[in-house]
Amino acid sequence: MASAREEILQRIRDARVPAAPPVVRGYLTEGPGGVELFAERVADYRAVVHVVSNVPEALERLVGKRIVAPTGVPEEWLVDGVTWLREPLSIEELDGADGVLTGCAVAIADTGTIVLDGGEAQGRRALTLLPDYHLCVVRADQIAGSVPEALARMEPTRPLTFISGPSATSDIELNRVEGVHGPRTLEVLIVT
């Protein structure tokens, strides 16, 4: 008897679907971009947005809290008065933290999205998931205008997380409500 794999592949060949014409990509590949549009779009989804020039100064808001800082976070971000939690961290420790501070890989102005890829200052995915508060630092040069521009900047085989606003649901009467399982507060610092 043929394996499921062979049988399915044979059924597909037997269907004799004719070749499709080449894809016409007539859509826009670039967006206007910019800090202003990104800030406006992030705020649309009830994330808190600040445009700042000095990161350590802006991080004063974390004083008195227990904050996760992933590997690769710049030394100058680790301001005094904050209990910094560093890897290795258990699930329980992450669950008990007040928040997490990260950078990002790419951001998308058009949709107000930040993208994490597990690289420098972002850490593994659980770090930005379990704490109830996520503070993300985005450099102006990391902001891509459109979805196509942003995807072209990513490394697809890294574990990617696209974040557009805090955790939300539309499951009750199709109205958006913020705050389910992911961080209920998302704060974005845009550095110019």
């Binding site: 597990g118 593994r124 990617l160 997380t161 974040i163 606003g165």
Partner: peptide, 19 residues
């Protein structure tokens, strides 16, 4: 009806130390 849904996850096979 959102410009982007709150979370999109992308993974490729297994990433050592993550997930």
């Amino acid at each position: 009806a959102e410009r982007m849904n709150p979370y999109t996850s992308v993974w490729t096979g297994v990433t050592p130390g993550d997930g």
